[in-house]
Design a binder for these strands. Structure first.
Lengths: 230, 230
DNA sequence: TGACATAACCAACAGTTGTTCAGTTAGAGG
DNA sequence: CCTCTAACTGAACAACTGTTGGTTATGTCA
């Protein structure tokens, strides 16, 4: 079924509008990356088939397949970062900020398993992952670290910078492990996701779980993709 | 360099010893799986080249490539399970049992990044991962759950079965996230692994970190692979 | 020594992939 | 109308994949 030939031979774009094919290619690649079980088996010809275009036409817009994939990944990465910032921007205090940020992370990852796996699940060829040069999601990690540190302000014992770093790191690993396993092993009986998020943050902030749960934004709050963008 | 032709045409095995090639194939596949960045790109011909044998010769020992990979994964999985059991078998109390078990898990995963990613990275086709049918490491998970529950015995509040399950699940996700990110993002400044393990278990058992750290078995304790098995 | 089953090979198949390059089409500007 | 060029195509390339059928070498046993 995936090898179906295109029925409509796809009208060529008008003169100045060569960019619309580029956008279509990006969308198709994103869709395929989110669909495929193994992201790195994405194929140039799959993208071409999806759009209904000759494989060679891609080379007018991207130097090669790596560039196309890298472009898609950069977009997804920026989308996640933007979502997390948006979720936290109106937080009245650091704890709410932290909760909103982490909830956005987990929900994005669970909502887009293919994209999450592509970005954070294992190593893509080094030059493909955006931010890999500066640490593969370093901005996200640092945001979590500072947010957690701010939320832990006012504890009776001031942690050192190393302790703050380690605490943030462990929070991120916990979030990542939750998303990864939740996505990849749907057959084991998972509790409701919000319970897990609340429990996880409760552990890492030393606050009671119900206090965290009360701070969790509603599911509909997170601004997602525009439905027509894919 | 990986495409080097074999120089010695490989002496054929004597009469009853057809099984030694099978073992060599398994070893070669294991080595390649642990080496490759993307496990699912393992190729029948790569294995054949590694051993120095014609691609067709593999079909005398395995019905197809999937069977070979599945066999290797099953061996690795059983190895991990055995290591965890061995590590915990002489534990005087449940907390030591839990610590030893988790430490063995993390150390095995960190010591064998390729194998860990292959087993738990969630990118292999479903039928390849052993235990996927009954929950992808369900035995390991259940061992952790019961171990954690036993270690939490004597707390002032007895948790329900659901709470025990959720707590074990979260511990496993944390362990998995730690191993995954530690393996895949070596460029970010990680604290010593034992500190992370102790801190993680401290969080999940509500015990002070130094108490946990004192229970951590020495690194040399874990019986690893025989050096010549690969 | 001869027969025979085992162990492994050789060559080929049909399919896939990324990439290149010489073309073709079509629409906008003169 | 003509021309030019952006937009795209078709065909081919070399390399790679899993898999197969037929073939050869080799050790063992009678």
């Amino acid at each position: 079924m995936s090898s179906q030939e295109r029925s409509a031979p796809r009208r060529r774009n008008p003169r100045g509008q060569g960019q619309v094919l580029k956008a279509q290619l990006v969308d198709a690649a994103a869709k395929l990356l989110s669909t495929l079980d193994q992201p790195e088996t994405l194929t140039l010809r799959q993208v071409a088939r999806e759009v209904g275009v000759a494989p060679a036409s891609i080379y007018s817009h991207f130097p090669d397949l790596s560039a196309l994939i890298q472009h898609v990944l950069r977009l997804r990465y920026e989308e996640l970062a933007r979502l997390m910032d948006q979720a936290a921007q109106s937080a009245p205090d650091p704890l709410v900020d932290l909760v909103a940020r982490c909830a956005a992370y987990v929900r994005w990852g669970v909502g887009q398993p293919g994209h999450y796996r592509t970005l954070f699940g294992g190593r893509m060829p080094d030059d493909l992952v955006p931010g890999s040069a500066h640490g593969a999601g370093a901005e996200l990690l640092e945001a979590v670290v500072t947010s957690l540190a701010a939320a832990a302000e006012g504890e009776r014992k001031q942690p050192s910078a190393e302790q703050q770093w380690q605490a943030g790191l462990m929070l991120w690993t916990a979030l990542h492990g939750l998303v990864s396993l939740y996505n990849d092993h749907g057959n084991i009986p998972w509790p409701p996701l919000d319970d897990l998020i609340a429990d996880l943050l409760s552990l890492h902030t030393a606050r009671p779980a119900d206090e965290i749960a009360a701070l969790l934004p509603q599911c509909g709050d997170a601004p997602g993709l525009a439905p027509d963008s894919i």
